[in-house]
Write a protein that binds this DNA or RNA. Structure first.
Lengths: 149, 149
DNA sequence: ATCATTGCAAACCGTTTGCAGCCTT
DNA sequence: AAGGCTGCAAACGGTTTGCAATGAT
């Protein structure tokens, strides 16, 4: 089920980070939460679970997780969610970046990662049209999910 | 050249807003600036030009302009830029929303609106795949523009 | 034992609110 | 003349910084 927590922690370990209780707590929470969470929401949930982590530490841990591409930010809300490590979709592009294709339900706040067929073509077209060398792209969709409709 | 200022102000007027000096100043600045600007940058530029507008008013004016789809926000930076009123690209989708297709140069900060061929198909595919009713989409690309390369 | 990491306090910054006075209509 | 809009002051909330204490390696 939640191979995420194990995998995330081993990525950190492999990168020379220490496995600490606060980091475990945050990673475990992210592993079991499908919605995107704000730093404050993370703090509250951890407090409620009796697994207190200082606010500042949460910020630093999230920063660390983001740098290691273990979480990604939802641009429209600023909240974070774990990356889908299994089917990490690199869009067959530059490997220095990974994709951010989010689908956000405005009713329940649930966030999914989605596969976007033909993104490569879109990006190529935009590059040609503009003369830009494109390095990153963020696609974000919002609407109402099936449950909420 | 800058039909933007005139057009933006007349849109406001048509919607029952008053044409005030602060609004004119902000709109004029946006008309002649291709880069996206933060509220603070707007304040500074206006001050430097001897056209002071209070910080709070800038926030309120930007809010008003955004509601009337005269500016749009760059999600990755939070800055705002005038909408391209001429070739407003509504993606042949729901008219309640307009598109946000931004191309940001990470070197000079310049922001362009781009046309994304085939976005409709992409959106349709995502909708089918997920079961979401998609209402809005934000596409943002960043890289290096021709000048900066 | 060492040094990365945490927790606390306090500073910080951008943004928002309340309200009196101004200026467009 | 009326009320939308502005400007000031102050509050606000989320985020960041400095530093001593803790704890993983």
């Amino acid at each position: 089920m939640s191979g995420y927590a194990d995998e995330a922690l081993s990525v950190l370990k492999a990168h020379g980070y220490r496995i600490t209780k606060p980091r475990q707590r945050v990673v475990n929470l992210l592993a079991e939460t499908d919605n995107a969470l704000s730093p404050y929401e993370i703090k509250e949930k951890l407090d409620a679970a009796g697994a207190h982590v200082d606010t500042v530490s949460i910020y630093r841990i999230l920063e660390c997780l983001e740098e290691n591409q273990l979480i990604h930010r939802v641009l429209t809300t600023g909240k974070v969610r774990r990356c889908d490590l299994e089917q990490e979709d690199h869009c067959a592009l530059d490997q220095t970046d990974h994709c951010h294709h989010n689908l956000v339900c405005r009713a329940c706040g649930n966030v999914q990662e989605v596969h976007c067929p033909g993104v490569e073509n879109l990006i190529a077209a935009v590059a040609t049209q503009s003369g830009f060398r494109i390095e990153q792209h963020h696609l974000e969709f919002s609407g109402v999910c099936m449950k909420c409709a």
